[in-house]
């Protein structure tokens, strides 16, 4: 038995050439939406790890970070003029659209994302506009609207390299943030080759009072409605007593 194990051990001991590994971390795993929430910024740090056995490379590393918020179904309607008034026409429904999408990269990765045959083109926001879909116009309008709300972000120089292997980026999260699970994908490229991919997650949720009110309205709508009525009656009554003249 030892006789055929020995060559195997020798094989294992000879170090094969390895690709780089990617290690990334977020400044926080939870974004809490409290009563004073008006947006937030997450920092992402990462390092490209290489050791003595890593392939020697001449070019630089390029990093692409994609952030996807929880998915929603969205109805996009073109406004049309009928009988002299503007109304919403027949809509296109988009299923499972990310409520937030952020794309950040090192400046050198721009070609990978924007060129026609670029390997990371599918990550781009622009790619949604010319996919030959008859709904392309609606899709572009959705992207434009989300961009103006800061919900779709594309910063192709947003990843800053602090050294050859160490990088960071800031992920801006606007006030109109949906709660749920956000997924962060980090891609390491050298030339056109994707060397490594890492996935992280963070959660956005309402906290404290905001969360209790929201849950109450969803889980016990009847009592929530009755609660609103009682609050109104008491406020109206107290207001009347406090301000009664004479």
């Amino acid at each position: 038995m030892v006789r055929w194990l020995a060559p195997l051990l020798i094989l294992l001991a000879a170090p094969p050439l390895k690709a780089e590994t990617l290690t990334v971390a977020l400044s926080s795993n939870v974004i809490a939406i409290g009563s004073n929430f008006s947006g937030a910024t997450l920092s992402l740090f990462g390092v490209v790890e290489r050791d003595a056995n890593t392939v020697a490379r001449s070019g630089s590393y390029e990093i692409i970070i994609a952030v996807r918020g929880p998915e929603q179904n969205v109805l996009v309607q073109r406004r049309e003029r009928r009988f002299g008034i503007w109304m919403n026409g027949k809509g296109e429904e988009f299923d499972r659209m990310p409520s937030y999408y952020g794309l950040f990269s090192t400046p050198g990765a721009r070609g990978l994302i924007e060129d026609a045959g670029g390997p990371a083109r599918s990550l781009s926001l622009i790619s949604v506009e010319d996919d030959g879909d008859r709904r392309a116009e609606h899709r572009a309008a959705l992207a434009a609207a989300r961009m103006s709300q800061g919900l779709y972000v594309e910063e192709l120089d947003g990843v800053e390299k602090l050294s050859r292997t160490f990088f960071r980026t800031e992920i801006p999260l606007p006030p109109l943030l949906s709660d749920g699970r956000y997924r962060v994908f980090a891609f390491l490229y050298a030339g056109e080759v994707n060397l490594a991919t890492e996935e992280l997650r963070f959660d956005v949720h309402k906290t404290g009072f905001e969360q209790r009110v929201f849950q109450w309205s969803r889980e016990q709508p009847l009592f929530y409605g009755l609660g609103a009525v009682v609050l109104a009656l008491v406020t109206g009554y107290v207001g009347g007593v406090v301000f009664r003249r004479g």
């Binding site: 179904n73 109805l75 309607q77 073109r78 406004r79 919403n88 309008a141 609207a145």
Partner: peptide
């Protein structure tokens, strides 16, 4: 609002998740 040309020619509604 009904008669004037709106700034935004598309209306976007988020449906229930």
């Amino acid at each position: 609002n009904l008669v004037l040309t709106p700034d935004d020619l598309f209306a976007i509604t988020t449906l229930a998740r």
